[in-house]
């Protein structure tokens, strides 16, 4: 997956403004960004939907995996369109699409957040180590980054999942283990230039050890690009998870998840538009909201991009 993410130049020092940290300045800019705020609201709604999935089930009276073979299917055995009982229609097995979408949000968000967190932690630590320690550590890590970035990610992910069998853990691990390299590369590049800055030498002259310099002096300076990258990575991860599911390597059925639902709906898109439309829409709205929000975060942390 080529992420369309450019680096943010944190080295650019902010102009002197009274009483504000660079971070709070970015937050203030972000709060003024209408598109980003609307996207954030949408994200919050999706999170709420995931949390309240059992409420959806309770209100409609349809558990996510319950197959309504009479009520939910036409006499020909086809899915039923949206109606008073099934607000967003049913799927090929007569299950409630709405309830399954709500439960599917849990998977998407869970994988999106956990896999991204793993990616960022591994990427930041290895990138810091490579850039700061240099020497043999850097040589080995730089080659490792090259290896991971050269491997056809999706192919190897499919191969891995087919070997281990699909599960939530495998999906999260596969995504985390293959995405860290780009984070590490960004962090490494930043650290390589930060390392030469005088404040690192100053810390050393005070007697600070490598670990302290790495985490206390260098790390705060790479946080901004990492935050930007992280927000933009979440939608990429969500899409990847959905893609694996679509290819039949997501979660074992009947667990509801968006990619899997779209995959199941493929054979019905000529007869049951709702079956593909609503899960597809849920997925699209989620990734779009995260991307728009991430775009706003990027602009907030790197005001240059907005300047003309």
């Amino acid at each position: 997956m080529t992420a369309a993410i450019e680096m943010v130049d944190v080295l650019e020092e902010p102009k002197a403004i009274e009483g504000r940290s660079p971070f709070s300045l970015a937050l203030r800019r972000l709060r003024k960004d209408k598109v980003a705020m609307i996207s954030l609201a949408v994200i919050v709604l999706i999170v709420l939907m995931a949390i309240l999935a059992p409420v959806f089930a309770a209100v409609t009276g349809h558990p996510p995996n319950e197959q309504y073979r009479d009520l939910g299917l036409t006499p020909d055995g086809l899915p039923r369109g949206p109606n008073g009982t099934f607000w967003l229609g049913t799927d090929d097995l007569g299950r409630d699409v709405l309830v399954r979408i709500a439960y599917g949000a849990r998977i998407s968000l869970l994988v999106g957040v956990i896999a991204t967190a793993i990616t960022v932690v591994i990427g930041v630590v290895l990138g810091l180590a490579a850039g700061f320690l240099g020497g043999i550590t850097d040589t080995i890590l730089a080659r490792l980054i090259d290896v991971v970035l050269s491997v056809p990610f999706l192919l190897v992910a499919i191969a891995l999942v087919s070997v281990t069998g699909p599960s939530l853990t495998v999906t999260v691990l596969v995504i985390g283990c293959f995405s860290w390299a780009s984070v590490a590369r960004i962090v490494r590049g930043q650290v390589l230039s930060l390392r030469e800055r005088e404040f690192v030498e100053a810390a050393r002259s005070l007697g600070a050890g490598d670990r302290r310099i790495m985490f206390v002096d260098v790390l705060p300076n790479v946080i901004a690009p990492v935050i930007v990258y992280t927000t933009l990575l979440i939608p990429v991860v969500i899409v990847t998870q959905a893609t694996l599911s679509f290819l039949g390597l997501g979660l074992p059925p009947p667990t509801p998840d968006w990619g899997g639902m779209i995959s199941e709906s493929q054979n019905y898109y000529t007869t049951a538009w709702w079956f593909i439309l609503f899960p597809g829409l849920a997925l699209l709205v989620t990734t779009l909201a995260f991307n728009l929000f991430g775009d706003g975060v990027r602009d907030a942390f790197d005001p240059r991009a907005d300047r003309t």
């Binding site: 030498e201 100053a202 206390v216 705060p220 300076n221």
Partner: peptide
Amino acid sequence: QVIFQDPYGSLNPRR
């Protein structure tokens, strides 16, 4: 102890 030349570069901007 050392006092450095560049008062901009020798102080960590994020701390």
